[in-house]
Design a protein around this nucleic acid. Sequence first.
DNA 1: CCATATTACGGCATGCGTAACGATC
DNA 2: GATCGTTACGCATGCCGTAATATGG
Lengths: 308, 308
Amino acid sequence: MKLHQLKYVHEVAQQGLNISAAAVALHTSQPGVSKQIQLLEEELGLQIFLRNGKRLVGITEPGQQILTLAAQVMFDMQNIKRVGDEFTRVESGTLTIATTHTQARYKLPMAVQQFIQMFPNVKLTIHQGNPSQVTAQVASGEADIGIATESIALDERLLCLPCYEWNRCLVMPQGHDLMNERTITLEKISAYPLITYDFAFTGSTLVSKVFHDAGVEPNIVLTAIDADVIKTYVNLGLGVGLIANMAYDEKRDQPLHSVDCSHLFPNSTTYLGFRKDAFLRGYMLSFMQLLSPQVNQKSIEEALKGSS
Amino acid sequence: MKLHQLKYVHEVAQQGLNISAAAVALHTSQPGVSKQIQLLEEELGLQIFLRNGKRLVGITEPGQQILTLAAQVMFDMQNIKRVGDEFTRVESGTLTIATTHTQARYKLPMAVQQFIQMFPNVKLTIHQGNPSQVTAQVASGEADIGIATESIALDERLLCLPCYEWNRCLVMPQGHDLMNERTITLEKISAYPLITYDFAFTGSTLVSKVFHDAGVEPNIVLTAIDADVIKTYVNLGLGVGLIANMAYDEKRDQPLHSVDCSHLFPNSTTYLGFRKDAFLRGYMLSFMQLLSPQVNQKSIEEALKGSS
DNA sequence: CCATATTACGGCATGCGTAACGATC
DNA sequence: GATCGTTACGCATGCCGTAATATGG
């Protein structure tokens, strides 16, 4: 059993059961990939892929197990390489962050700016997605660190540290009726067309729960993936927007007015998560510290021990 | 980076930093091992082993990390092999149990007997040790399943399922004063010389805690590794024995008399533990079921999800 | 001086790439 | 007929083992 073979099998699965595509991705020849997979299957005495004649059409059940284990092996190999890089004092490498739009747009820029100054030789990549995509990317090793709210903390493969808390605010055009209200309530909100995050997105399920528990049905006319889009439509007069409070800036969003809603909803916590079995490069720790100053080597070790 | 290289490095560390011994264990030549380790070190750009001239004298810090990761890789490779064996319906293989004397002597025999009837082609090995050794063996992959009391459930790498509960009893020679007591108390016990398990052993720390909390100082004259030894010395009249109640059998231990102590100590739970990331062969599950009927594929999957 | 690690070198297995073939859609 | 997977074959790489060398206890 060779490492290549695991790599090949993994890549073929990634490429939608296409050996040719996998061969290209692996910078090698199709026959080589084909052969090695056959050899592996022969050695293990089972089929990894289901074939219809000469076409790969599926993955067998043991094949699924093997793919999972192969991914684990490759992740560990990556870890070993990282140990190498880390201890040779090579302050270069790659940092891949997976996060949601809100974080990427309103919370990360400061940390990112500081980071690229501290580590000019580290290539930084930001993957954007919804919270479950973020979680999946970190769990699979595609991303090193994930930053998202709530749901990311549920995955057992990840170690998650609380980063900061936030709440929501309403945004509305200047002169809107709600500006005159002394205290905003859910009922008052429900009287107007509402624009907020897509329901699959973080916090919104919590928001919908709050409305539901109060027996109030909000009048949602539009949902969007990010606050910028929401604000745009609020500007067009389509309704009031319910967004994360960090997404509103008085100066930048001047034509809009905002009203805090912290009294209506519980705080949400944004977590920073990474795989428990990942080897963390020094610069990865540094990035985490930029985001959440209380994070350090010790706190992570303690969290790792305390988990499970 | 090759799998051999990781294997070699691992074996050299296992053999006490002796390349020659590692080469023998690996059925290969010394120069080969030496060379491959050098190549790996070169590729990673760091020293794994500390050398004094040509002698290996220690492991560097990155080396330590790499050894851990190498062990993980090898464990995963073993898992893959197991998937192969499992799905080719080869009902043969190896099952290594790590457990304490008490379990091996009084609880396992029935399960073992049934097991070898069900799976005559599976080679069964029992490793005996104290609870922390049991835990370590399972965690390192040397043993597939560990059976021990209390402390094994604390290791996060392992998934532990409760197996059964037990308590303790006093054993004494016929005609001993304590036989006439209607109710045994800690104070009455402390009036006589006591023989029990070594304090490093399971439950005994709990026992000592019970005595301590009650403010009673037992008069321990001898500690032993297993109940058979304890009973032997009780027979010789050296004192009364405090042992697991399953270690006393009225017929077999005829010259001795026993008194139940369940009212004095809380129940102890024996757990069955295995690595969370281990691929479990069918016969491993079967063995667990023999020991603890409520265990099955589903209960394990649920436990895995519920952990951490 | 013995045990042990490294260097040198030749044979052999194995993986890779090109080319040809076969099958599926 | 185009795409894709498998088979065939020759070449190059790299690993292994033996022998020789160097070094530490």
